[in-house]
Write a protein that binds this DNA or RNA. Structure first.
Lengths: 228, 228
DNA sequence: CTAGTATACTTGTCTGACGATTCTGCTCGG
DNA sequence: CCGAGCAGAATCGTCAGACAAGTATACTAG
């Protein structure tokens, strides 16, 4: 993700590596929503002990990337309309605070600018997954630049679920990536101008668009399977 | 905590009970900051297996109630000035969104009103711990009333650390609890009046006061141990 | 007094196992 | 033919014990 900028080593422990791998498979939609993930399956697929797999599933559950109740097997959640609204309400809360803080000091995080460049570079690609990742990286950089560990931690959890839904729908995008890039640019510009109000307003608009696309996709899918 | 209102059963699983118990001991300051918590110690104290203790420590670490790095033993964190500022910045972000949402529909959560009553009841007590708990319950009720699962989840984590610092300092309170009660009343009133702006402003003021008390306490403590 | 080494402590991971709970499919009676 | 109850299978929660690997501390040698 940001290997050369922060010199972060790859996951050193086995549990960590396992967690990262499963997490990626979930958010990229390789493991479909509704699919069951038993401890034994994970243990088998990766040739690790069951306790290790268990720890992995528990971490993912804590982040909302899996749902599970006692004595029942974990499943990848299928977010409904209420979930998406709730998710975007929470997301907006966190990101508003972030862009407002940045705009107050008119600091445009260079990591966000880099993510923007990366997004433009892959805008024409067919690799939707990398577009989604660049999008996530942009928002992540925005919040990280505020310098608040706890805000960043909250945002990470939220983004995990965002990534999950985007990953599930990524097979059919409904808008050209360039539109997203332009919305991002608007936000950065407002921050650079030191205008917190406008930055928040642009952000809100951007998130509103994104949420709308997700909800539209959801409804379309549901009506499809209703006719089938 | 809220046994009769939500009919929540006590923790059913062993891990859950263990987690709750250790958590309480930490936030109430029974386990001092800087104190080391080895897996073996927990396992011994509660007569559970080490993996169970390990899972417990991992959960607490994820919530920020313990700090630990690979192959090193977990310790109760001692929050410094930067931590407290960061914590209250994050807290304000979440709670602002909550009171604004409530004020927009002018709904005063009755759970918060109940917590207020409870706080008045114990205001004269010497039992600081119960005052702290009532305070926490008030803010918790405020956020819960919004009805956003994800906002509540973020807030729970934040409040955990808030509880931790308050628990550590609770031996010598610097203000009369009634002051806090009045600040709470102001917030509720603004919500009831359907005035999001004023509600946010009152909340910000309240949190500012609380943060100031914490920081003052911290400085006092540090200067004490400097002279010693 | 400093530097390097050796030992004890702690954690990471694994194997294997047993009881408890949930789910599934089957049988039996209406 | 269909629904209810039951038995078996699958899965999870918890435990015990063990070994390897890393960290911190104390000790020794220069």
């Amino acid at each position: 993700m940001d290997g050369q900028t922060s010199f972060s080593l790859g996951p050193s422990s086995l549990t960590e590596a396992l967690y990262e791998s499963v997490r990626k498979r979930i958010v990229n939609g390789e493991i479909a929503p509704g699919e069951k993930l038993t401890e034994i399956r994970i243990a088998g697929e990766y040739s690790v002990a069951r306790p290790t797999a268990k720890a992995c599933l528990e971490r993912l559950t804590a982040l909302g990337l899996l749902r599970r109740t006692t004595h029942k097997t974990a499943v990848v959640p299928k977010l409904d309309e209420d979930d998406i609204r709730d998710l975007y309400f929470s997301r907006e809360t966190v990101e508003r605070a972030a862009v407002a803080a940045l705009a107050r000091t008119a600091t445009v995080p260079q990591a966000a600018a880099r993510a923007q460049a990366a997004m433009k570079a892959v805008a024409g690609d067919m690799a939707f997954a990398s577009q989604v990742e660049a999008d996530i990286a942009f928002h992540s950089a925005l919040v990280a630049a505020v310098g608040s560990r706890r805000l960043a931690r909250m945002h990470e959890v939220i983004l995990g679920e965002v990534h999950l839904t985007m990953g599930q729908f990524q097979a059919h995008r409904t808008t050209h990536p360039m539109n997203v890039v332009h919305e991002h640019d608007d936000i950065l510009k407002a921050i650079g101008d030191g205008d917190p109000e406008r930055a928040q307003q642009r952000l809100a608009h951007h998130l509103d668009q994104a949420q709308g696309r997700l909800l539209g996709q959801l409804r379309r899918e549901r009506s499809e399977e209703a006719t089938a």
